[in-house]
Measured scan of single mutants.
Amino acid sequence: MGFKLLSKLLVYLTASIMAIASPLAFSVDSSGEYPTVSEIPVGEVRLYQIADGVWSHIATQSFDGAVYPSNGLIVRDGDELLLIDTAWGAKNTAALLAEIEKQIGLPVTRAVSTHFHDDRVGGVDVLRAAGVATYASPSTRRLAEVEGNEIPTHSLEGLSSSGDAVRFGPVELFYPGAAHSTDNLIVYVPSASVLYGGCAIYELSRTSAGNVADADLAEWPTSIERIQQHYPEAQFVIPGHGLPGGLDLLKHTTNVVKAHTNRSVVE
Rank of each mutant, 00 (worst) to 15 (best):
M1T: 04
F3Q: 05
F3N: 08
L5P: 05
L6I: 09
S7T: 07
S7R: 08
K8V: 09
L10W: 13
L13D: 04
L13M: 07
S16W: 07
A19S: 08
I20V: 10
S30Q: 06
S31N: 07
S31A: 13
G32P: 14
G32W: 09
P35D: 11
P35M: 08
V37C: 09
V37E: 11
I40E: 14
P41A: 09
V42R: 11
V42E: 12
E44S: 13
V45M: 11
R46A: 13
I50E: 03
I50S: 03
A51D: 14
A51H: 06
G53W: 11
W55L: 03
W55N: 02
S56H: 09
A59M: 04
T60M: 10
S62D: 14
D64C: 04
D64Q: 13
G65T: 06
G65Q: 08
A66G: 10
Y68W: 04
Y68E: 08
P69T: 06
S70L: 03
L73G: 09
I74C: 04
V75W: 02
R76K: 07
R76H: 11
D77H: 11
G78W: 10
E80I: 15
L82W: 11
I84G: 01
D85T: 00
T86Y: 02
W88E: 00
G89D: 05
K91P: 09
N92Q: 14
A94K: 09
L97I: 04
E101C: 12
Q103A: 07
L106V: 14
P107D: 12
P107F: 09
T109A: 12
R110F: 04
A111M: 14
A111R: 03
T114S: 14
T114E: 00
H115W: 00
H115P: 01
D118V: 06
D119K: 01
V121P: 04
D125L: 12
D125H: 15
V126T: 14
A129G: 12
G131S: 09
V132P: 01
A133M: 15
A133D: 14
T134M: 03
T134S: 11
T134I: 05
Y135N: 03
S137N: 15
S137P: 05
S139H: 10
T140R: 02
R141A: 14
L143V: 08
E147T: 13
G148R: 11
G148D: 15
N149Y: 12
I151R: 10
L156S: 02
L156G: 02
S160G: 13
S161T: 08
S162M: 15
D164V: 08
F168S: 02
G169E: 04
P170T: 11
L173V: 14
Y175A: 04
P176Q: 01
G177E: 01
S181L: 01
T182R: 12
D183K: 01
N184E: 01
L185Q: 01
L185W: 01
I186V: 13
V187H: 00
A192G: 07
S193G: 09
S193F: 08
L195E: 00
L195R: 00
G197H: 02
C199S: 01
A200I: 09
I201P: 03
I201N: 03
Y202C: 04
E203M: 00
L204H: 14
L204A: 07
L204F: 05
S205C: 04
R206W: 07
R206G: 08
T207C: 05
S208L: 08
A209S: 11
G210S: 05
N211G: 08
A213D: 14
A215K: 05
E219K: 07
P221V: 14
I224E: 02
I227W: 03
Q228S: 15
Q228G: 13
Y231P: 01
E233N: 07
Q235A: 06
Q235W: 05
F236L: 10
I238R: 01
I238F: 07
H241N: 00
G242K: 03
L243W: 07
P244A: 06
G246A: 10
L247Y: 06
H252I: 03
V256E: 04
K258W: 12
A259T: 11
A259Q: 10
H260D: 07
T261I: 06
T261Y: 08
T261W: 14
R263D: 07
S264H: 12
S264Y: 05
V265I: 06
V266L: 11
